[in-house]
Simulated scan of single mutants.
Amino acid sequence: MKNKFNLLAIFLLLITSCVFSQNADNKWTFGIDLASVKYSEADGKDLGGSFINQSPRFSLSKYMFSNITFVGAISTAIGDNQKYTTFDGLARYDFGTSQNNVVPYVFIGGSFIKAEVVTTPTANFGVGNTFWFSDKYGLNLQFMYKYSQDKFQSQKSHTMTSIGLVYSFGSRTLNPRLWSSSH
């Protein structure tokens, strides 16, 4: 089991070290989000609460190829009675809309969640959307489901939602705004 954990940790580190972006011309973005974790009421009773504030959440992303973006993120509970720190690695697919002002996406990935003294892996699935309001700045909304196997007593499956600002390190060439009057 320890070897599997080490291999997964190395894989996630490789992904996050060479990671992240929004389009083929603009490889890198950085995000800072307000995020929260929500457990079911029953699971929340076992874990010390149903809601955990996860702000700030920092992410770094790089566009790789064929509408695929790799994302690495970290967040931790600050000022909460529960301990919860998550290290996330995601692969996003943007349906070929990375040059648009509105960029919906789906993703799959994994996390290592450290709660108390135990680190637990999860499988992550979700959807999101980035609304670019300039060539440098955007607003990102995301909904993530984190699946934790029943064999891990330290963590239960839960959701994580986030909203935040995204900064592009390059100048984005955007298609005309959907709401502009001239085309």
Rank of each mutant, 00 (worst) to 15 (best):
K4I: 02
F5K: 11
L7W: 12
F11S: 14
I15H: 00
T16L: 05
S17K: 01
S21L: 08
Q22N: 12
N23R: 11
N26K: 01
W28F: 13
D33L: 00
S36A: 14
V37H: 01
V37R: 09
V37P: 02
S40D: 12
E41S: 15
G48C: 11
Q54E: 11
P56Y: 00
F65L: 07
F70K: 01
V71C: 03
A73G: 15
I74D: 08
I74A: 13
T76Q: 03
T76W: 01
G79P: 04
Y84W: 12
T85I: 10
T86L: 06
F87T: 10
G89C: 11
Y93C: 04
N101W: 07
V103R: 08
F107M: 12
I108M: 09
A115D: 12
E116L: 02
V117L: 09
V117H: 14
V118G: 03
V118A: 11
T119E: 06
T120L: 06
T120E: 02
P121V: 08
P121K: 08
A123N: 08
N124E: 15
F131R: 02
F131E: 03
N140Q: 15
Q142R: 15
Y145V: 03
Y145H: 15
K146G: 07
Q149R: 10
K151C: 05
S154W: 06
S157L: 12
M160C: 10
G164V: 07
S171I: 10
P176N: 08
P176Q: 11
